[in-house]
């Protein structure tokens, strides 16, 4: 406290008590060097600069937390008004029609047929469709899979709703 040689970044406050040097978040190199620099200029300007730094760090944390919190009641829904809806819809459709279309773009929408001619069709059709062992295999596997899914149960481990530990 009050010493010009400030503590290193990695070294946490050994005695566990927070003092004015204790960082709430890991400081970035810029702000840290600023504090070190202002330390040597005397106590009053350095404490004001420090305060400003801590304020910005605090507000940064606050903003980050607010961004990460899911607050269903605070969700703002931007309802599109009738005239804006119509304006935008016509804008989009005119924008669509004004895209330059070469034939290839339209052809992309017409996929080629999947079916192709198979040579020696009669040989393919008269071949053994499926072996008895394969039939039995798929029957057994699907029976086992259905039995395995029946074993899926939900086990209650923890409470779903918890309270934050605010003293």
């Amino acid at each position: 406290m009050g010493c010009c040689c400030s503590s290193e970044d990695e070294k946490l406050s050994q005695d566990g008590d927070p003092d004015e040097r204790t960082r709430l978040i890991l400081p970035n190199p810029v702000s840290n060097s600023q504090v070190n620099h202002s330390d040597s200029y005397g106590s009053v300007p350095s404490s004001i600069a420090q305060q400003a730094d801590e304020q910005s760090a605090l507000s940064r944390i606050l903003m980050q937390t607010a961004n990460n919190v899911i607050d269903v009641s605070a969700i703002e829904t931007h309802m599109v008004e009738q005239h804006e809806y119509i304006d935008r819809a016509t804008q989009y459709s005119s924008r669509l029609t004004s895209i330059c279309h070469s034939a290839s773009v339209l052809n992309k929408l017409h996929r080629p047929a999947l079916l192709v001619d198979v040579p020696a069709l009669d040989r393919v059709l008269s071949a053994e469709p499926i072996s008895a062992s394969d039939l039995q295999f798929i029957r057994n596997t699907s029976d086992h899979a259905a039995a395995a899914m029946r074993k899926v149960v939900v086990t209650h481990k923890e409470d779903l709703v918890v309270n934050f530990g605010i003293p």
């Binding site: 459709s93 669509l96 029609t97 004004s98 895209i99 279309h101 773009v105 339209l106 929408l109």
Partner: peptide
Amino acid sequence: VEAFNYSQELKQYL
């Protein structure tokens, strides 16, 4: 006419 068909083509595809 070709430009108008793009929207129509899209709708038909959908």
